[in-house]
Amino acid sequence: MSGRKIGDVILDLQNISLRFGGVKALTDISFNVREHEVRAIIGPNGAGKSSMLNVINGVYHPQEGRIVFHGEERRKMEPHKAAKQGIARTFQNIALFKGMSVLDNIMTGRITKMHASFLEQAIHFGRARREELEHRHKVEEVIDFLEIQHIRKTPVGRLPYGLQKRVELARALAAEPTMLLLDEPMAGMNVEEKQDMCRFILDVNDQFGTTIVLIEHDMGVVMDISDRVVVLDYGKKIGDGTPDEVRNNPEVISAYLGVAH
């Protein structure tokens, strides 16, 4: 991998259990994420991967367990607080704002950094005006980075799937996150689009030092880009380690080959 230095543990999940009615989505899961690393979560369908991400940024609240983020221990996260503390994410099923243009979608990513009150915005003067411009500049940087200049003004609903995924990443990056959660960022893409996406993810990690937690089904990709991998199956953790360790873990192999359940 590149020359970036992996740091200390910044996110530590301890004994997380999450249920929906009778369904146990996660059972007693513990793992951690280190600063600047690319951490992958893998597992068969319904293993609880998305639920795990949702616990990390507070969309779901686990019934049991603790979350330590930047040394602060808590029972559960809250989504907008997680955003304020530098966690951004994308979703498995694209969650763009369909009625808005690409530019406006990405601008929303900067909302936690805009402070003008709604009255200032209503008269569009002073701070409000300045902020719109400043943040537009930032957003244009992200647009350049992800090479989507040509679709700036397009309503997101009209874009093909692959580009929508890219816009969603742009919206997350616009927040300048320290930690980026990606839920199957390459699902449904062709080989070329996947390569682009891989490049973007690695570039983000490399250039901005952003810690990345990602869910991905494509084993090739996972093994290529991640530093460490957690494996979930039926809501339980069955493996955790470097790609090589995980690849040779007999439990993981059997889960993936569908043996012995």
Partner: peptide, 20 residues
């Protein structure tokens, strides 16, 4: 402005809006 975008974000997908 950003209030308007926040309104539309909540309208289009409230979960994503909160996550942002």
């Amino acid at each position: 402005s950003s209030v308007g975008r926040a309104w539309m974000a909540v309208r289009d997908m409230d979960v994503a809006a909160e996550v942002i």
